[in-house]
Design a protein around this nucleic acid. Structure first.
Lengths: 407, 407
DNA sequence: ACGATTAGTTTATTGCCTGAACTATATGCG
DNA sequence: CGCATATAGTTCAGGCAATAAACTAATCGT
């Protein structure tokens, strides 16, 4: 049995299908084609018809719905050879979505159009570890309102949003289960208050999961199956299987940072023992490299580490070597369990790639021989903004999956 | 984003939906309800209608199709209080599917009806390690023909089949990538020749995956998310997520036996290092327990081990303790990556449960604290026949998913 | 100017589900 | 016995969505 194709025409499993589902499915199909077109290329109704297999008549009718919903816009005429010129179709540039991020030492909010172009973004430095979650959310709501107003001045309407936090989340319940680096446990978020009066609401994401979605959208190779591992203080992970985020039964799969890579290892902040994070997280690497964390921001510490590596300091080199080796152990196990043989490195793993790559590849070859070609280990295509872009993009994705929600 | 519900009305992603898809979806829905009913309970059209949400008119029409396809049968009348008595519906008892299994030292074939009751089964002892795959498949084809004839004498028609093999498979290509214990590498199977002239063909499965499907069907608690781990010479695994087998992008996810649990460990038959199999597989346990494998079948060796455990022999106890401990390491990592907190033990893990359970639970608590309640570690409900039942049952499942294939 | 060519719309048809009316078959009570 | 009541299942008109084919619209080439 193969993974099911993503549900196209069904409202839910176990519920009767009716012709309305067909309409929804085909609306999604048409909107998806229009959204997929490269920037600057505007498909015509006829092109959409031949690309989807729908008839011209059906596409005309479906496009009419999308125009009325304000999701799609007609743009100029264009002539291809003989015949009547075609009317271009594009995602409506005045419809947008918001991405938000709460991290340890900043909050951030940004608006992208439906094609994923960042229109506005603001980041606010802020120590989010003290004072609990209430002031953080209040500050973020303010920042979001500001960014939204800026977008609104440009005539852009925000349809919905996504929020990324560095911790375990229950998206259905809008609840942060644990975010060790924020010191949050079982925090219920009022997502509605964060971005009031948007038709599509606000979705909650784990940071690495959101970043994985951003990678999915922006990867030049168009890979549809990979593990994204993000090295921060913690080690986060996001699993993309069949161009979908895999979140598991409870919504928080992908904790690559807590794979056990050394059963005799030290205690982890998660309560476990010998997790990858205890050997390849930032604190572990900096400590092993002999770089004191005190009186420095984390960015500065990583910069110091890179200098040490460039200087060829043995302690730094062996610290990174160890991190790469154990990262390989965890990814080898992931490859075996999930059958994914492609990796995208983010956070400090991307920064340290020049020194990390060889030990990582060696480790992969030792623990999962023949499963990872070197070109299957890539670096993040979106970098720092990944979580925000991914959270925003996921709203677009859910909109494309169910365009009827805006009618 | 949550796992998509299984596609109900869509043929495939990226293809236009039409009204025929609605029909297919609803056929599946109706057949599914009829199949779900407990043994001996026969739903009426009216009950199916209220259970599914379809109208009586639609259900009547859909049931007619299923009757004509021979998938469903009307059975007697039954009176519930007042009113016209209802006509019972059941899966047609004369339609059946075949499950087949190739293992190291036997081949087996059996026929079950669509409700999963085993009608005939034959097992043939056979050394499948020598001589390559051709004679094995010839022998299995013979055995299948025999079993099919026996079922045919009872008036039962075989609609399709499933074959389980102990190795990595590519189901789409009908290819066994590697089956170390059989000595097979990149073997293409002619599944059509194995069971000629069946309308639904033959599907190929990894043995543990098939067994996981059988567990899914027969679990008393009706769990829909679990890891099945089967202890044999190798350690196999099957992942069930949302009542679906998770096979990963390439079709061979779930290799729990090759999670790295000891990076400094010994070489594994898969080419890796420190795999779970090298510490919790049968050979590893028997060797650590000091039980010589020579001049015994594997069953006898395990029996000897159980005697030693009952006698309280320290070497045997510590061997099993170690196996349980490392099994816990692997399952803790699986829980983190897949977000699955429920386990079903099969093979020797089930047999050794009295001695294995405590170290396993301790290990789970150490490496993934709070994720596994003791009652979430269960034993196989189907035992030895699991792979065969699962392979057969998967054909029923795919038939319920797409009943129109028989019309 | 006019045919060729391509884009998009209109119209008739088909398939499928729905709701309401209808038929069928039982029970229970006077 | 007869009739009200209740439940199962069928028939039929209506609506929606996709399709195919005919039709209108707009442009190019000669």
């Amino acid at each position: 049995m193969v993974m099911p194709a993503s549900a196209v025409a069904a409202p839910e499993s176990g519920v009767p299908g009716s012709m309305g589902d067909v309409r929804r499915s085909n609306l999604s199909l048409v909107l998806g084609r229009i959204a997929e077109a490269p920037a600057g290329v505007h498909l015509s109704r006829a092109q959409v018809a031949s690309a989807t297999g729908l008839t011209k008549a059906s596409v005309s009718s479906l496009v009419l719905d999308l125009l009325e919903a304000g999701l799609v816009r007609e743009v100029g005429l264009s002539q291809q050879g003989r015949g009547r010129p075609s009317v271009g179709l594009e995602l409506h540039p005045a419809r947008s979505v918001m991405g938000m991020e709460i991290n340890v030492d900043y909050i951030s909010a940004g608006v992208t159009d439906l094609a994923g172009n960042l229109l506005v973004r603001e980041t606010q430095e802020r120590d989010n570890r003290s004072g609990g979650h209430v002031p953080v959310l209040a500050a973020l709501a303010g920042l979001a309102a500001k960014v939204r107003a800026a977008a609104g001045d440009g005539g852009v309407q925000v349809l919905g949003g996504g929020l990324a936090v560095p911790g375990l989340v229950d998206p259905a319940a809008a609840r942060v289960l644990t975010a060790p680096n924020l010191g949050w446990t079982n925090v219920d978020l009022d997502l509605g208050a964060l971005l009031p009066d948007v038709p599509l609401g606000v979705e909650l994401f784990n940071e690495a999961n959101a970043a994985a979605l951003a990678e999915l959208r922006h990867r030049p190779d168009g890979a549809s199956d990979f593990v994204f591992v993000s090295g921060e203080v913690g080690v986060g992970g996001g699993l993309v299987v069949g161009s979908e985020l895999f979140t598991g039964p409870g919504g928080h799969a992908g904790e690559v940072g807590h794979i056990v890579v050394d059963p005799e290892g030290v205690r982890c902040s998660c309560g476990g023992t010998g997790c990858l994070e205890t050997l390849s997280g930032q604190d572990a690497i900096l400590a092993a490299a002999g770089i004191a964390a005190e009186s420095r921001t984390r960015t500065e510490s990583i910069e110091a580490l890179v200098r040490a590596l460039n200087d060829g300091q043995p302690r730094a080199l062996s610290a990174v070597e160890r991190a790469g080796r154990y990262l390989g152990v965890a990814l080898a196990s992931t490859a075996r369990v999930m059958n994914i043989g492609s990796v995208v490195l983010g956070g400090h793993f991307a920064v340290l790639d020049p020194w990390l790559r060889v030990p990582l590849l060696n480790s992969l070859e030792r623990y999962a021989p023949g499963r990872f070609a070197p070109e299957q280990v890539g670096l993040s295509a979106v970098g720092q903004a990944g979580a925000l872009l991914g959270a925003a993009g996921s709203v677009v994705r859910s909109l494309v999956d169910a365009p009827h929600r805006l009618q």
